[in-house]
Amino acid sequence: MQLVNRNSPPVDQVGIEDRIARVTARSIKSDMKLEGLKMAISMIDLTTLEGADTNGKVTQLCTKAQYLCNEYPELPSVAAICVYPSMVGIAKKALGKSGIKVASVATAFPSGQSSLEVKLLDTKMALDNGADEIDMVISRGKFLQGEYDFVADEISTIKEACGEARLKVILETGELGSLDQVRKASDIAIYSGADFIKTSTGKIPKAATLPVTCVMLEAIRDYYFETGKMIAMKPAGGISKSKLALHYLMLVKEVLGDQWLSNEWFRFGASSLANDLLMQYAKAQTGAYQSYDYFSID
């Protein structure tokens, strides 16, 4: 494997913060804002990952995914629904032929503290139930112990099991400790076959941030420069406001370029972002903020 001899480049945290300050100072107005809001909606992986998830809750979320807002039929639907493996079948049925994908977390989500056998079974269960995309977690403990080959082998084994399904590799960046580590984990995931790299499980307080995303986008860009292959990106957790979502799109535009600006190459893992995007869209159309009650919660 190429990984063994490949050192990840260092990351300068101060430089990353300067870069983010520049990106967030961008002024996103009028048409650009409208297009950005629409684009962000189309990139959402509408997510419910609760122990309390029921058939009813998942079905309702799938309904929302398909009928986001009747008032604005020009709006796109979200990219996918993201659920636990046990809910994949329900979601698949509820979404029918809508074209909305079903993503399933797997591999002993969220901690990843299990054996490879169990992780493979977990993945297989999601796939058997019809999942289009698998969101796996890396073994952070092994990564922090320096057992990079273990982490890489696990990812490539799961990737093999995924077959046609696209594999998102969750790094859980909030547990990695530094941007250098984020870069290293990104490189390991990319070189082990990840289709997407994803920041977080959403299960710990430190979820996606712009600096972390910037480092991961740079890893994707460096890989693209080296190999010509595109890898997709998914920040997840903590993105609930439109303004922040637009900053993410600006970051993608500036680091990777316009060709990454579609839901094939960029996703938001979020549960409440959709309604804020809808509210901002309605505000842009009508000139006034609407009551929360005009937007269905799920």
């Binding site: 002024s27 996103i28 107005k29 009028s30 048409d31 650009m32 804002k33 297009e35 950005g36 684009m39 799109l249 535009k253 316009d258 600006l261």
Partner: peptide, 8 residues
């Protein structure tokens, strides 16, 4: 892309 800068 449709995400092009508008005058600000």
């Amino acid at each position: 892309s449709v995400f092009e800068f508008s005058p600000a």
